[in-house]
Nucleic acid binder design. Structure first.
Length: 840
RNA sequence: GCGAAAGUGGCGGAACUGGCAGACGCGCCGGAUUUAGGAUCCGGUGGCCGCAAGGCUGUGGGGGUUCAAAUCCCCCCUUUCGCACCA
């Protein structure tokens, strides 16, 4: 008997898989397809055991689906543009491209040593012109449809990364990648009009039934749709300008006793300009504008305001109300101005109390509670009821009033119904080098001119020195910047910003379907076969970054006629992180575990099994060396059992029907295990319980072999003769074990499968099937309870009737003391599983 | 503050539509084998009482529904995550 030597067999099978092109696939309309995808990797240098957990989860799913007869596409690639490469270039004087490609080579080796079954021939790398060319192509299509546009606006600026960030990339006022502070800057920038898909993105959420609720909630919150109305107040005096406000409570407008402007509101400057002595006023405005942005956004600052001295007419009451500037009104939401209804909005109530502004009740609750009075009001009444003191609308219920009053506003041309979103257009300009050049030329006469499609890609020039500071590095390269206008031929300048790398990742899963296409991003026919992605696994940190951008791109590509579905990812699994010493693994914390070290010591199969077994995939896991050793022990146990037996039982043929009790019990366990593992893996992905079922099977096989005299613990087991009936049972059990184990530990499974006499590769084998009749136990142990407490156990035939069970239970000697002298009130027999005797 | 998820042995975790709580693994204890250690194999392992048979108790805390609750309902505590002046 040989020892289990993962180093030898893993190398052997990885080589065979490559030679056989075992995981490469083409479209095959005769078979059902399955698209299994894991989020592609940023090539940071080294993958750690936390990163690869996700790849191993995907691999279990892909390998199982393959064995179930699906045409499985399971690709991998590299999210290869981005700042770390550029920062590394600045620090180490390596070119970002060299740095990135070296990292990719290293990490690819790491993944290959883990035996992940990727279709490597479909590998994509986003920093290569053959990929980012299609970013440019899609961008131009969007530009044509006015989905990509340029505008000057206030944008998030990361002080450390020295570039603009999209709203989604700012977390609690800080940069999502480097956690440094983010400022607001007014810059001219490129945006993608994701807001024109806001409703589709929101409505689509209801159809994403196989996504975690948590992610859907986050997306709903992020889109932040609210229905309401815009109404126009008008400033009295000179200049007589309109003030548009957005409200979701038009029904309360008769209680609108003041108007609040955000410090950033354009009117604030105009009012200042119309003043004689404006300096004190401007100073107060500047103070508000300078207040910490995060604190303003999160409401952590004190609500303050000041009177502009101007008045505006409430279009419904005709009354003139005060106009104030308030620091809690957000310039970037709605119209940047709100009506103050202190009786029915808590913020306005506090503001009115502080500055002694009038409070007028216009809604009275209709739930029978006491009527509200302005002078005794302790807090705003935000509930529903009926309108009072609201002119012709008095008496209407709130909800009806909103409809009627919106109509009235529209007729009188003082307002209209609108839907407001929290979602903003996606700012994609980045003032950095290592990204996709935006394919636009600035011409003095023609304006913004798209680079013609036939001139794509606009390649990144080869920059050799990186300062890392200042404006876009591309702007420093005259050969790149200076060009001719494609329309008029005059001298013109190229756009020097590059695209956000989230553009690259918004559609890469389609490129895998047809990765070498040089006429289109991908052939629509290929996408029709493979897409949408059936199973997508990755970190929850992308809940409202990559996952919302991708949904947006999917809809755009659908409208461009490239795909036919509405949602890109049918099922989403958000995998838990791997912690060490209670913290997420990271280079800076110095707590990373390198998979290569684990592979060298225990083998890839042990690492894979451990990470799949220790917790459900969605949960985070705490790395423990002893747990890893447990998995190694189990695989050795499998080896010691199967390896010496393989040659002796192979080809034994199917077990006969007429088995003795011991053989039949073993066979039952085999079929039950197939059933359990199959249902644990699909559709649920309960990988940990699937593994535990396999451990039970192995435990039972040890006992079984011991009885048969051929087990690992038997002295001179090799010379003991195995009965043919038993050999057949063993062969069936061992083959099932190897097949069921193969998605988890493919190398070990391949080796044993070969030793069992199969030469086509375990990945090409059929997933084992079970016979429910065999899997079913023929005797059951039925607990008997008296008043809910277990007092005895009955061993009975599986088919025993409920009536017979009741009689057995009442006659049982162990039950007897608990029922004698008492009245049996009721006996419940729960579907042959349990008997409960109720006594008084 | 609002919302969601979770809370089960020393630890990671099982338990399908309410029906034997603690599968499986780690750790620990005991035994076999061994010169010894390691490895391996076998057995035990929620707590309390008991030599034992057995009994009592037990899924964050408290109440409730039910013949029966880790599971359903109400209140509270803790943790994690998300949202957070969005008018």
């Amino acid at each position: 008997m040989s020892d289990y030597s993962p180093q030898t067999i893993e190398k052997k099978w990885q080589q065979r898989w490559t030679e056989r092109r075992a995981f490469e696939v083409v479209e095959d309309p005769s078979k059902p397809k399955f698209y299994c995808l894991v989020m592609f990797a940023y090539p940071s240098g080294h993958a750690h055991v936390g990163h690869v957990r996700n790849y191993m989860i995907g691999d279990v799913v892909a390998r199982m689906k393959r064995m179930l007869g699906y045409q499985v596409i399971h690709p991998f690639g590299w999210d290869a543009f981005g700042l770390p490469a550029e920062n590394a270039a600045i620090q180490n004087e390596v070119h970002p491209k060299a740095w990135t490609l070296d990292n990719i080579a290293h990490m690819k080796g790491q993944l290959q040593r883990l035996g992940i079954s990727y279709a490597w021939e479909r590998e994509i790398t986003t920093c290569l012109p053959e990929y980012y060319r299609w970013n440019q192509w899609i961008f131009l299509k969007m530009f044509e449809r006015d989905l990509a546009y340029r505008r000057r606006s206030s944008v998030n600026w990361c002080l450390s990364c020295q570039t603009v960030l999209a709203n989604e990339q700012v977390v609690d006022g800080r940069c999502w990648r480097c956690s440094s502070e983010v400022d607001l800057r007014a810059l001219e920038q490129w945006f993608l009009r994701i807001t024109s898909y806001a409703d589709q993105l929101l409505d689509g959420i209801d159809r994403l039934t196989e996504w975690p609720d948590k992610v859907l909630t986050m997306q709903r919150n992020w889109i932040g749709r609210s229905e309401g109305a815009r109404v126009t107040f008008s400033l009295t005096g000179e200049p007589a300008l309109p003030i548009e406000v957005f409200t979701t409570r038009l029904d309360t407008i008769y209680g609108g006793t003041f108007v609040l402007l955000a410090p950033e509101h354009a009117l604030v400057d105009k009012i200042a300009a119309s003043m004689n002595e404006s300096e004190a006023f401007r100073k107060r405005v500047r103070r508000f504008r300078a207040q910490d942005r995060t604190a303003r956004l999160t409401g952590e600052i004190e609500k303050e305001g000041f009177d502009t001295g101007r008045r505006a007419t409430n279009p419904f009451t005709g009354e003139d109300v005060q106009v104030w500037v308030a620091n809690f009104v957000l310039g970037e939401y709605g119209t940047g101005a709100v009506m103050g209804v202190p009786a029915h909005d808590q913020r306005d109530f506090e503001f009115a109390k502080k500055y002694d502004l009038p409070i007028r009740i216009v809604i009275q609750p209709d739930d029978g509670s006491a009527p509200l009075a302005a002078d005794t009001l302790q807090e705003a009444y935000v509930g529903s009821g009926r309108l009072v003191a609201s002119g012709e609308f008095s008496g209407l219920p709130c909800a009806d009033a909103r409809t009627v009053m919106t109509q009235a506003a529209a007729e009188r041309k003082i307002g209209e119904s609108t839907v407001q979103y929290r979602l903003k257009d996606w700012g994609i300009s980045r003032q950095r080098y290592w990204g996709t050049p935006i394919p636009i030329v600035h011409c003095e006469t023609c304006g913004l001119v798209p680079v013609p499609y036939e001139e794509l890609p606009v390649e990144l020039p080869d920059v050799t020195t990186f300062s890392g500071r200042g404006d876009s590095p591309l702007a420093q390269i005259p050969e790149f910047v200076n060009t001719m206008c494609p329309t008029c031929g005059a001298a013109a300048r190229r756009e020097t910003d590059t695209m956000d790398t989230f553009v690259d990742s918004s559609w890469y899963y389609y490129r895998y379907c047809d990765p070498r296409n040089d006429a289109l991003p991908f052939d629509p026919a290929a996408a029709r076969y493979w897409a949408p992605v059936d199973f997508y696994s990755g970190g929850v940190e992308h809940a409202i970054l990559h996952l919302i951008y991708s949904r947006f791109f999917c809809k755009v590509l659908r409208d461009l006629g490239l795909v036919e579905h509405d949602e890109p990812f049918t099922r989403l699994l958000t995998q838990g992180m791997v912690l060490k010493d209670g913290a997420v693994m990271s280079k800076s914390k110095g707590n990373v575990v390198d998979p290569d070290d684990m592979v060298a010591t225990y083998g890839a199969d042990t690492l894979r099994l451990y990470e799949m077994f220790v917790a459900p995939p969605e949960k985070e896991i705490e790395w423990t060396d002893s747990g890893l050793e447990g998995s190694f022990r189990f695989l050795n146990r499998v080896w010691r059992l199967v390896e010496p037996l393989a040659a002796r039982v192979r080809g034994a043929g199917p077990p006969v029907d007429d088995l003795d009790d011991v053989d039949r019990a073993m066979r039952r366990k085999t079929h039950e295990t197939i059933q359990r593992v199959s249902s644990d893996l699909d559709p649920r992905v309960h990988l940990n319980t699937a593994v535990s079922a396999l451990m039970e099977l192995v435990n039972d096989l040890y006992v079984f072999c011991d009885k048969a005299g051929c087990g690992p613990r038997t002295w001179q087991a090799e010379t003991v003769e195995i009965r043919p009936e038993t050999a057949a049972v063993l062969n069936e059990a061992i083959e099932a074990l190897v097949l069921l184990l193969s998605p988890f530990t493919p190398h070990l499974a391949e080796e044993l499968w070969e030793r069992l006499g199969h030469h086509d590769g375990v990945e090409a084998a059929d997933w084992p099937t079970f016979d429910p009749a065999i899997a079913k136990a023929d005797t059951l142990v039925v607990p008997v309870q008296v008043n809910g407490k277990v007092r005895a156990r009955l061993t009975v035939d599986a088919g025993r009737s409920d009536a017979a069970l009741e009689a057995d239970a009442l006659a049982d000697p162990q039950v007897h003391p608990f029922i004698t002298g008492k009245t049996v009130a009721k006996v419940i027999v729960a579907r042959g599983r349990l008997v409960n005797i109720v006594v008084k």
